[in-house]
Design a protein around this nucleic acid. Structure first.
Length: 343
DNA sequence: TCTGGGGTCCTAGGACCC
DNA sequence: TCTGGGGTCCTAGGACCC
């Protein structure tokens, strides 16, 4: 299940007069500032029109404003989206299936049915009745097939993608049409002469292991064949870590201030971590210098802890490993938890 | 394209050990 | 003291996703 233009849809629910207009949500809503598009309405995406007038998520806000000057720009309101998402997932769980939430606007639902389209429509009606939000539902024999199927069902539709029609639908598309394969991998594959899903499915897993590593190589081929094995689970999600990062509106060139900001971020991370039962074993500091060069340095803690003072001290020690003291545009602090003991 | 913020997983290389 | 072959752990970086 994948909600249609989720963030924009939540905004339109509380501002119905925006329906039908190009709406762009991102940053603090000021398109003259640093930030990117979190969500754009279908009107702003300008399907079928020229790229020079189309906006999509990830696009810099300043570029979006140049492309659609009369769009409505709104700030990101995480609290509102979290609340709406909770409502949706609650309604979905009410149907009695195993539900695995994959972010604000997506979930896998484990269903064994002779008539999956009927179940899909029931899911859509239930969510619509509870929240007024539309969604598309993809049907497949595994998570990979179902996930890709939602894209073909948009908006507000259903689509069935199984071994029966996998190559008919996807065979001639580029590999980055698949879930988990992006632009970089597609380029690297093209360099090996592999330019379609069908070609990737026919490739030798061992040969790809030489180029992509022992796990990724064979995984690429399995994915192109539409195969995936992970079951849908409703086990409560356990975060591996928590982090905070900020892109500053103006670059910081005073490294005393950088120190102060890292301390502040470490305190925010300490507060986030306090909500979890697990201790922190490692702290990583990230610095993005003004020309968009990003580096990180981390260190293992002497002993596992959640103590804010210890996390801050570790973050400052990690910061000391950065020798280059030129202006920065982004600072981040991340805390990583001890992994679960097996068994 | 002057390029967010929250994450996850994998890889390569070096250190270290036997 | 021209130097093997594992294995594991740690670290930094990259790719990807929502």
């Amino acid at each position: 299940m994948d909600l249609d233009q989720f963030i924009v849809a939540v905004e339109i629910l509380r501002r119905p007069e925006l329906r039908g207009r190009p709406v762009i949500v991102g940053g603090d809503g000021d398109p003259t500032k640093r930030g990117v598009v979190a969500s754009a309405s279908y009107e702003a995406r300008g399907y079928g029109g020229p790229v020079s007038k189309s906006v999509h998520s990830g696009l810099p806000l300043r570029t979006a404003a140049r492309r659609i000057p009369d769009a409505v720009f709104l700030p990101v309101d995480r609290t509102a989206y979290e609340a709406a998402s909770e409502e949706v997932m609650g309604a979905l769980r009410g149907l009695g299936h195993v539900v695995e939430v994959m972010g604000w606007d997506e979930a896998f639902v484990a269903v064994d049915s002779e008539d999956p389209e009927a179940v899909a429509r029931e899911i859509q009606e239930t969510i619509k009745a509870a929240t007024q939000l539309g969604c598309s539902v993809g049907i497949g024999r595994n998570r990979l097939q179902a996930k890709l199927a939602t894209g073909f069902g948009k908006p507000a539709g259903t689509f069935r993608l199984t071994g029966q029609n996998w190559f008919e639908v996807l065979g001639s598309r580029p590999p980055d049409a698949l879930w988990g394969i992006g632009r970089k991998t597609a380029q690297k594959l093209a360099g090996l002469g592999i330019e379609t899903v069908a070609a990737l499915a026919a490739a030798d897993p061992q040969a790809l292991a030489a180029s992509f590593g022992p796990a990724t190589g064979p995984w690429l081929v399995q994915t192109a064949r539409g195969l995936a094995s992970a079951a849908v689970t409703d086990e409560p999600y356990q975060a591996r870590g928590h982090g905070r990062e900020i892109t500053y509106q103006e670059n910081i060139d005073d490294w005393q201030r950088v120190r102060g900001e890292i301390g502040r971020l470490a305190q925010l991370v300490a507060a986030d971590v306090a909500a979890e039962p697990r201790p922190v074993i490692r702290v990583v500091v990230k610095v993005r210098y003004a020309p968009f060069l990003t580096y990180s340095h981390g260190l293992a803690l002497d002993e596992p802890t959640q103590e804010p003072a210890a996390l801050e001290a570790a973050a400052l020690a990690a910061l000391d490993r950065f020798t280059r003291r030129t202006p920065v545009r982004l600072l981040g602090v991340r805390a990583e938890f001890a992994p679960d003991e097996p068994g």
